[in-house]
């Protein structure tokens, strides 16, 4: 019989927490990059990429993250690809993040007044120049607050990857709860850890939003 002290519990949860943090970062960075591609396809002029981007967004926003992970986890193994849990988790969360970020950013691009497009067109700017010098700088200012806010959703989303067996914070928590028979203590600590990760982000997002509204 191995007994767990509180220190053992906290130490193991910290390892899980580090993996949660790592997965969140990977998903957010890769998802942001992919989201940028989806965004440009979605707001671009070509019809086929636009439709594909829209489908991507609706598919990933309209289905549960858990089922996306299951389908990836079991689906890609069918093609003979060896699919470890961490890869399915990272890939699934990246796709999920890209869809949501692309949609958030599209809203920001569309919030830039139409006159800005017209004025820059009058200055004989090409589409790329309009984007680079006029539209995106303004859209980016609008986008910061909701993007930081969405980071909270990514961190919380990583909890679902525990179900396909990725040993992040929640999975570590369940394993410890099963071993120590102290589920209330362990899950409270897990919840606390997520809160410590997420609350500063939500708070920062809110203060950014206030600042933005004050400036207008």
């Amino acid at each position: 019989m191995i007994s767990f002290s509180l220190w053992d519990i906290v130490r193991n949860l910290a390892i899980g927490g580090a993996l949660t943090l790592l997965l969140s970062l990977v998903a957010f960075v890769l998802g942001g990059a992919a989201g940028l591609l989806v965004l440009f396809a979605r707001i671009g002029k070509w019809r086929v990429p636009r439709a594909m981007a829209q489908m991507h967004i609706e598919l990933f926003q309209g289905t549960p993250l858990l089922l996306q992970l299951f389908t990836l986890f079991f689906g890609l193994s069918l093609f003979g690809l060896d699919m470890p849990a961490w890869l399915a988790a990272a890939l699934g969360l990246t796709l999920f993040t890209s869809a949501f970020l692309a949609e958030i950013w599209r809203g920001c691009v569309e919030a830039v007044p139409k006159g800005q497009w017209e004025a820059s067109a009058c200055l004989a700017m090409s589409y790329g120049e309009q984007m680079r010098h006029v539209i995106l700088p303004q859209a980016m200012r609008l986008a910061v607050a909701p993007t930081v806010g969405f980071a909270v959703q990514v961190v919380k989303g990583t909890a679902v990857t525990s179900i396909i067996g990725f040993a992040e914070l929640t999975k570590t928590g369940s394993m410890i709860a099963n071993a120590t028979f102290q589920p209330f203590l362990v899950y409270s600590l897990v919840a606390l850890a997520y809160f410590v990760l997420c609350y500063p982000l939500s708070h920062y997002a809110q203060s950014l939003e206030r600042k933005l509204h004050a400036a207008r």
């Binding site: 909890a159 179900i163 369940s174 589920p183 919840a191 809160f195």
Partner: peptide, 11 residues
């Protein structure tokens, strides 16, 4: 709002 639904459910 700052903890995952799954953890709330487990708790």
């Amino acid at each position: 709002r700052n903890t995952p639904f799954l953890v709330q459910l487990f708790l």
